Simulated assay, not measured.
Amino acid sequence: MPRVVVFDEFGGPEVMHVVEEPILDPEVGEVRVRIEAFAVNPLDLMMRSGALPAPVSLPGARLGVEGTGVVDAVGPGVSGPAIGDPVILAAIPDASVRGSYAEYTTLPASRVIARPAGLDVTEAAAIWVGFSTAYGALVEKAGMRPGDHVLIGAASGSVGRAAMQIAHQIGAVPIAVTRHSAKTDDLLAAGAAAVIATDGMDIVEAVRDHTGGIGVDIVLDLVTGPGQQELVQAARPGATLVAAGFLDARPTPSPVGAPITIFSYRSFEHTLDAAVVKRMAAFLNAGVRHGALRPAVDAVFALDDVVEAHRHLEKGLHGGKKVVVAV
Rank of each mutant, 00 (worst) to 15 (best):
A154G: 15
N41P: 05
S158V: 10
E21G: 01
M16G: 05
V19S: 04
R145E: 14
D209N: 12
Q228K: 12
A124M: 00
G11K: 12
E269R: 13
S79E: 14
A125G: 02
L45N: 13
V323A: 03
V19N: 06
V5A: 15
V121K: 07
A51E: 13
V232M: 13
E27L: 14
I152C: 10
H310F: 11
T252V: 09
T211G: 04
Y101I: 00
S79A: 13
A91W: 11
V40W: 01
F131K: 00
V33R: 11
E27A: 15
P59E: 06
D199L: 03
D273C: 05
D305P: 03
V71K: 11
V28E: 14
F301D: 01
A95F: 07
D85G: 09
T271G: 07
G287S: 03
T261F: 07
L107S: 02
L241N: 12
T224W: 14
G77Y: 08
T178M: 00
D25L: 13
S96Q: 15
G153A: 15
D248F: 04
D25E: 15
I203T: 14
I35H: 05
G157V: 01
L187F: 02
Q228G: 15
T271R: 10
T184A: 14
E66F: 00
A275G: 08
P86S: 10
V4H: 11
D8V: 11
A234W: 01
A154K: 08
V31T: 08
G319R: 04
A189H: 13
V5L: 13
D304Y: 07
G118T: 00
N285W: 00
R115T: 06
V256G: 06
V19C: 05
S49E: 13
F38Q: 00
H318M: 10
G64Y: 08
P55R: 11
D221T: 01
A126N: 02
S267F: 07
V207E: 02
G257C: 05
G84Y: 10
A302K: 14
A126Q: 01
I218S: 04
E27F: 08
I218T: 05
A102R: 00
A124Y: 01
P59I: 12
P146D: 06
A296K: 09
I23W: 10
I92W: 08
I203K: 09
G136W: 03
L63T: 12
L303W: 03
D25Q: 13
V78E: 09
T261I: 06
R48N: 12
G245R: 07
A190N: 06
F38Y: 14
G64H: 09
G238P: 10
A155I: 02
V74G: 04
D185Q: 14
E205C: 04
V40N: 01
A299T: 15
G171T: 03
G64W: 08
V31P: 10
E27D: 13
H168D: 13
D248R: 08
Y101L: 00
D221L: 05
G80I: 11
A193T: 14
T133E: 07
V150W: 03
L313W: 12
G147E: 03
